[in-house]
């Protein structure tokens, strides 16, 4: 990479995205992640101004390290779940239309191992579950992000519709925060439509 390009890239990477957190009101149906997916939350949430990728959106109550709902809105063939961190040296795995629903937890795991430097990631449970009115999968997982000491838990629902992957995940520290808000996440996931 040329030095001048490196400067621009580094400056953009270093520039914090501090604008645009918005309120998601309770009881209103909203489209998420610039996609056909819509949900109706039963309680208020905050939508972060920064996005994990083109087809992603993050909601939180106390900050995304304490409780985080991530919407993946129609991940297309040969694209990643979220933005590449270091495409040249550590490329993220890509979604393929040939994947089965049971491959989706592994796709998330492998993406996290690269993006978060997460050596500790375990899929705890997976089972068939309806999601957005179609056959999907529900799975739970545990992980420790590479630069953190805290053990986090996650739960996700996913479905593949017309060759695109739709998924909603919830993640929070195992201590206090996961249990505090998991019911609110499940309500959101239950309300999803495509």
């Amino acid at each position: 990479m040329k030095p001048i390009t490196l400067i621009i890239a580094a400056a953009l990477a270093a520039a914090p995205a501090y604008a645009g957190n918005s309120l998601i009101p309770a009881g209103r149906t909203v489209q998420v992640a610039k996609s056909a997916m819509a949900v109706t939350p039963g309680s208020e949430w905050n939508k972060l101004g920064r996005r994990p990728g083109t087809n992603g959106e993050i909601w939180t109550l106390d900050g995304d390290k304490l409780n985080r709902v991530t919407f993946y809105g129609g991940i297309a063939q040969d694209t990643t779940l979220f933005r590449e961190v270091d495409r040249k040296n550590s490329p993220l795995p890509r979604f393929s239309q040939t994947m089965l629903l049971t491959d989706v937890p592994k796709l998330l795991e492998n993406s996290y191992r690269v993006a978060l430097g997460s050596a500790l990631f375990t899929i705890d449970q997976m089972e068939p579950a309806r999601f957005g009115g179609v056959d999907g999968i529900r799975f739970t997982y545990s992980f420790v992000a590479g630069n953190q000491e805290v053990q986090s838990k996650g739960e996700a629902r996913a479905a593949i519709v017309k060759g695109r992957l739709y998924m909603i995940s919830y993640e929070a520290p195992a201590l206090h925060f996961f249990e505090k808000n998991v019911a609110q996440f499940r309500q959101i996931a239950d309300s999803a439509t495509f």
């Binding site: 604008a19 957190n21 106390d62 304490l66």
Partner: peptide, 24 residues
């Protein structure tokens, strides 16, 4: 670790007034 995550959140979402979470 939980305290560090909490303090990260306070710094990002409370100490930068322009980045506060609407519900808070």
């Amino acid at each position: 670790g939980l305290f560090t995550s909490l303090a990260d959140s306070v710094r990002e979402f409370q100490f930068f007034p322009g980045n506060r979470l609407p519900t808070k």
